[in-house]
């Protein structure tokens, strides 16, 4: 831990997760509690977005930049974070972030904007193995974005619609373009839009189930579940037991990165 004297300002640890869709920042205090955070779209300039996210998180927590002792960056844009002291993969950071909440053997499922991860952790938090989805939008946030576009719905309305019905159409195509064609058939047949949206969520869940048997306690993280809790409920239904969704599930990778930063000091 830091050797800061009692009259110097307290130090903080920063985790930055530059994902394909969103950039997340978490600031941790010396005791491991979250002092500040920020989430924003990654955009096209990752370095600038990371800077803005950090500035916002610091302002929200009433902290000065100098108080950040160490920063770890993760996510696809991890190498674009100029102020990071270290980089770590999102596999590592999501594992560490989820274990922080669970403190037991878990299977982490992260559904991100562009990819999915399944990470198995032992009781002591050590990673046993991991898998990533194939290079395809199926089963990721990008799939939901594409379907929203096809249905001319704002993304924010998808959750409300999916939760409003218990009926869901079956979208069986792996290919997003084929799935959109399937949707056309359902629309022509007069299927209510809410059932199509719930079907799209179920399709995401189905692609995740196809990645791994998902044993033990399943912890679900990522932007998709953060904005669409119904995805978590559907995954629980399909595996026959509730899944655990940590507080602020979109921040888990950044939290893991901040915890790694804190551990290194």
């Amino acid at each position: 831990m830091s050797n800061a004297s009692s009259d110097s300002p307290p130090v903080f640890f920063c985790g930055v997760d530059v994902g394909a869709s969103a950039t997340k920042v978490v600031l941790l205090d010396g005791g491991g509690d979250i002092a500040g955070s920020d989430v924003r779209l990654s955009g096209v300039d990752y370095q600038e977005t990371a800077e803005q996210a950090l500035a916002e998180a610091l302002a929200g927590a009433g902290l000065a930049r100098e108080q950040v002792e160490r920063t770890v960056a993760t996510g696809y844009g991890r190498r674009n974070v100029g102020f990071a002291d270290e980089v770590s993969t999102e596999i590592q950071c999501h594992g560490v972030g989820c274990y922080h909440w669970a403190q037991r053997a878990i299977t982490v499922v992260d559904i991100g904007g562009q990819d999915n991860k399944v990470i198995r952790l032992a009781a002591d938090g050590k990673r046993l193995d991991f898998k990533m989805n194939r290079k395809c939008a199926a089963g990721t946030g990008a799939f939901i974005e594409e379907i929203a576009l096809r249905l001319a719905l704002p993304l924010e309305q998808m959750e409300e619609l999916a939760a409003s019905t218990q009926r869901a159409v079956k979208l069986s195509s792996f290919c997003t373009v084929f799935a959109k064609t399937e949707i056309l058939s359902h629309l022509r047949a007069g299927v209510p839009v809410a059932e199509i949206v719930r079907g799209a969520f179920l399709s995401v869940v189905q692609r995740v189930i196809e990645m791994d048997p998902l044993g033990g306690d399943v912890v679900l993280t990522g932007g998709v579940v953060a904005h669409n809790p119904t995805v978590g409920a559907l995954l629980g239904e399909r595996i026959g037991r509730p899944v655990i969704v940590p507080p602020q599930p979109q921040l888990t990778g950044a939290l893991g990165a901040a915890l790694i930063a804190r551990r290194a000091v």
């Binding site: 696809y76 770590s88 993969t89 999102e90 596999i91 590592q92 990673r127 991991f130 290079k135």
Partner: peptide, 18 residues
């Protein structure tokens, strides 16, 4: 066209970390 640099890099680095 069938290869993603970022996905592969992340997977190799995650294996190395492990």
């Amino acid at each position: 066209r069938l290869y993603s640099e970022e996905q592969a890099r992340t997977q190799f680095e995650a294996l190395i970390e492990q």
